[in-house]
């Protein structure tokens, strides 16, 4: 059979497939999450990606790790208190950063923080489906738990751990110190007294390179 007789039907098929694709569209993050749910959800339910405040505090002092702390809280809470070296990106701004997140270096670790865990968890889902960055973690208990561990004052500690996980900053931060608050970068002595199960494991993103030559 002469192949030229296949040119027109082949072209029509290709055109039809492309037109169908233009109509059908690509999955949005919520749809992608449904596709990837069976693979990613166990990481959340088995708490494999929620790291203790003590582990994050250690990472902050680890010169071999390129640590990126992404704070997804509102501006008010950010101004009151945030971790040293953190960067504030609201959840709706994460999609625009997906390329940067996907290109973390091999020793890069990203930790997402919110006041509790709910917002950070939603942000983690979005980062995983849009950037596929395996070295992404969530601060267990959020800033409220962090302050309960590291902020001075027993009274504040009690308030920070009480109440529903409603994403309110419950610790009584009196002044908007941001990262100048003493708890923003806890001292080594305090970290050493805390026990935790280390969960951060640097995972290399598998890169299948190729070229047509």
């Amino acid at each position: 059979m002469k192949t030229e007789s296949l040119h027109v039907p082949g072209a029509m098929l290709l055109l039809l497939a492309a037109a169908g694709l233009a109509w059908y569209g690509q999955p949005v993050p919520a749809e992608k999450w449904e596709f990837m749910r069976s693979e990613l959800e166990p990481r959340l339910t088995e708490r494999r990606v929620q790291i203790e405040p003590a582990e994050l505090a250690e990472l902050m002092r680890n010169d071999y790790i390129d640590l990126q702390i992404i704070d997804v809280r509102n501006e008010r809470d950010w101004n009151l208190f945030h971790l040293r070296g953190a960067e504030r990106i609201p959840v709706e701004g994460l999609f625009a950063q997906r390329k940067r997140f996907s290109q973390l270096p091999g020793n890069g670790v990203m930790v997402i923080v919110s006041n509790d865990e709910a917002t950070a968890t939603e942000a983690w889902k979005q980062v995983m489906v849009t950037a596929s960055q395996p070295n992404t973690y969530i601060l267990a208990g959020g800033i409220n738990r962090w302050l309960a561990e590291f902020a001075p004052g027993h009274h504040g500690r009690k308030i920070a751990t009480e109440g529903a996980a409603d994403e309110r900053l419950r610790y009584p931060v009196k002044k908007a110190l941001g990262s100048r608050h003493p708890a923003a970068f806890p001292d080594t002595h305090h970290i050493k007294t805390l026990e935790f199960e280390s969960k951060v494991k640097l995972q290399k993103r598998v890169v299948m390179k190729g070229g047509c030559g």
Partner: peptide, 19 residues
């Protein structure tokens, strides 16, 4: 190209993870 993006649309391939 058409196969890659149809696979992505149907949830068989994560295009963001393609090098």
């Amino acid at each position: 190209m058409v196969l890659i993006f149809w696979s992505s649309a149907l949830g068989w391939l994560d295009y963001d993870d393609v090098w």
